[in-house]
């Protein structure tokens, strides 16, 4: 067996997984794409294990471990997705923007804190935190 065949398949599978992670909106689809990438890695591990004739079978054993971890990961990931779905009513990845900078107009003013607007900036910061929290609260109810 030429190693290059499984390795190339694995590389292409990985790239497809990458595309899926980057392009899909639905969080479950993203999880699926992650699984694709993990499987690409598994294939690599097995192929190299065979090629190198490892007496400890580290490649295959690690593949087993990866599969187990993938199972755990999917379980946890789905739990998180469900939690997000409960609070946000959506699992579209590009609509979950809690990580973003607050786009409110007052943010620019908190910049000149050295001019005395520090307290204002604090208030804005607090305010933005407040909206996030309260938004979450609304969704939860």
């Amino acid at each position: 067996m030429h190693i290059v065949y499984p390795v190339v398949v694995s590389a292409l599978l990985f790239s497809i997984g990458v595309y899926g992670v980057l392009a899909r909106r639905n969080a479950i689809l993203v999880l699926m794409s992650v699984e694709l990438m993990l499987n690409a890695v598994n294939l690599n591990l097995v192929a190299f294990d065979v090629w190198l004739r490892d007496r400890l079978h580290s490649g295959q054993v690690l593949t087993l471990f990866v599969i187990v971890i993938a199972a755990a990961e999917v379980g946890l990931g789905l739990a998180i997705v469900l939690a997000v779905f409960r609070t946000r009513r959506t699992i579209d990845v590009d609509r979950l923007r809690a990580l973003s900078e607050n786009a409110a107009g007052t943010d620019d003013e908190s910049g000149d804190g050295d001019g005395g607007g520090d307290r204002e900036g604090d208030r804005n910061g607090g305010g933005s935190r407040g909206t996030v929290a309260s938004g979450g609260g609304e969704a939860a109810t």
Binding site: V21, A23, R24
Partner: peptide, 15 residues
Amino acid sequence: DLDSGNRWAAAVVGV
């Protein structure tokens, strides 16, 4: 709408 607007960038990166 299963694909996000990021699709073309993702395609490029994937390729």
